[in-house]
Design a protein around this nucleic acid. Structure first.
Lengths: 291, 291
DNA sequence: CGGATTGTCTGACTTAGGTCAGCGACATGC
DNA sequence: GCATGTCGCTGACCTAAGTCAGACAATCCG
């Protein structure tokens, strides 16, 4: 490791520590200790169960309990017994709690906005931040099954189509491609998987089934800032696992010779080239894999 | 501000908070509270005077004193009276303190290395981190008045002349240009301003006066890595403020048509083109601004 | 010289954050 | 139905961090 790289990273650390510190102190601006503010925000972001809260925030159960009690006394939170297990408790925001949460969200958003607004090369900066966040959050990328019509999935698909348009010599027209029914990419026929880094969708893949033993892999996409991290491979593996889980034995996919990284990945992970199996105008490579 | 940009920044914040947290706890790995570790590191980085330490770390004088006492008891630090002013004290590392400081440095470096090593696209990541650090550190760029013969000023001027040499079709020969006397760019006749990022000079501008109501702007330069951040504009504004402060009412400057960004800046900030007012061989554009 | 100011230190106090043992209510497996 | 484990809560306790008033010595300025 060249010493120069170390000094660059340490400069980054210093810059970022100052910025994060500023965010923390802005949270303190609402007259509540940071711990309580973090709990309030976690609940606002949908983490209701006390156990889940503890894990997420890395707090001791006693401390967690006290913080919740404090928020309850402020009238921001109520805790109710868990419907299925009366030992557990679930915290929820009251009306006042929702207002307070919204105020914190507004603070966060304003801080984020001001950062970009006061920097002239905003898009460049955002791309750099994406890359750094992905690199730092690499161990925390989650692959999850979701509805292909969900917001996260639609985001990925939009990016995917846009990229095809740029990369295929012929351009790409969504209307001309066989757009699978959402139901074909959901249980029980198939599945749709997104990769989430801290909740932000950064990749996807679809498993399109018809109910039989054969299914197709569709819409494999990884966002540019997350490439080179083995995420495509991980998504493909997750899709294969989902296929096995659905008792599917043969997978197929079509692709285009312009997508060289994808073709390389398929060849390296046990896919074999086969004859054309559809008359879609865009693909010119066809693969199969037996599970 | 599109909501998407906000979510990207907030994702970055979360990723970086986790990483910074990991850095903090690694500092705790040496059995010393974070505050004491920070003081030790600041001293190791050459900040000896107690007052300077307090400012840098943002600590109360009582707390600072106690932390120093603790480090003294551990045998890592000695504090001596300041040679010129016996009220002040200067802290220095003992041999054991230097060893401990080296251990902290090694931890920081290892953490930085591991980040890059576990990410396949290292150079790209480093560039992204540089950009983010520059963007975040923008507010911490200080514009200060200094002697035009000081080290920082000379560094900037050397870079400035080198760049003129590259950009002017005719080349540039320092000897042929009217090199103003240092005294013309110092109080009470004028001023010389440098921009410092983390103590490193990254830009400059000179205000050259003769004692009357008219002065000239000279030597506006911004280092390439800091361009696009509005630093030139900020330097010019600081120079104008200094001029007003010196009761100067009319500013002039000469420039060259090869320096397009500079010409654009002048036109946008209230400068008007005037006739040639000197016979210097390099400039071919002349501007004036009334304050 | 004498009063004001500066720089540091000390003691008393507060708050935030965190740990730990044990309790009571509930759940689970045999 | 009982032993065992799980979940959250409580009280007692601890450390780190920070605040504040005042003490004390050195310095500065008129």
């Amino acid at each position: 490791m060249p010493i120069d790289a170390v000094s660059r990273i340490r400069r980054f650390n210093r810059a970022v520590t100052a910025e994060v510190g500023a965010l923390d102190t802005s949270f303190l601006g609402r007259g509540r200790p940071l711990g309580a503010a973090r709990v309030l925000n976690a609940i606002g972001h949908g983490r209701g169960e006390v156990g889940a809260l503890r894990d997420y925030l890395g707090l001791d159960s006693g401390l967690m309990s006290r913080l919740l009690r404090g928020l309850e006394e402020e009238g921001l939170v109520v805790t109710l017994p868990h419907p299925g297990d009366a030992r557990r408790r679930v915290a929820a925001l009251t009306e006042a709690g929702r207002r307070e949460f919204a105020a914190y969200e507004a603070l966060s958003n304003a801080q984020a906005s001001s950062l970009v607004e006061r920097f002239p090369r905003a898009e460049e900066l955002l791309r750099a931040m994406d890359l750094v966040a992905t690199a730092l959050g690499r161990e925390r990328i989650a692959v999850e099954e979701c509805d292909p019509r969900s917001e996260a999935a639609v985001h990925c698909l939009t990016e995917y189509y846009a990229e095809l348009g740029r990369r295929l010599a012929t351009g790409f027209d969504v209307a001309l491609s066989r757009d699978p029914e959402a139901a074909d990419m959901m249980r029980p026929r198939g599945a749709f998987l997104v990769a989430l880094s801290d909740g932000r969708p950064i990749g996807c893949v679809g498993l399109k089934g018809k109910g039989g033993e054969r299914a197709e892999i569709k819409r494999l996409w990884v966002c540019p800032s997350a490439r080179g991290l083995g995420l495509a491979r991980r998504l493909m593996k997750a899709a294969e696992d989902a296929a096995r889980n659905l008792a599917i034995t043969t997978l197929r996919l079509d692709s285009n010779s312009a997508l060289t990284e994808a073709l390389q990945l398929y060849r390296r992970t046990g896919w074999v080239e086969i004859d054309r199996f559809n008359d879609d105008p865009y693909p010119d490579f066809f693969f199969e894999k037996r599970l």
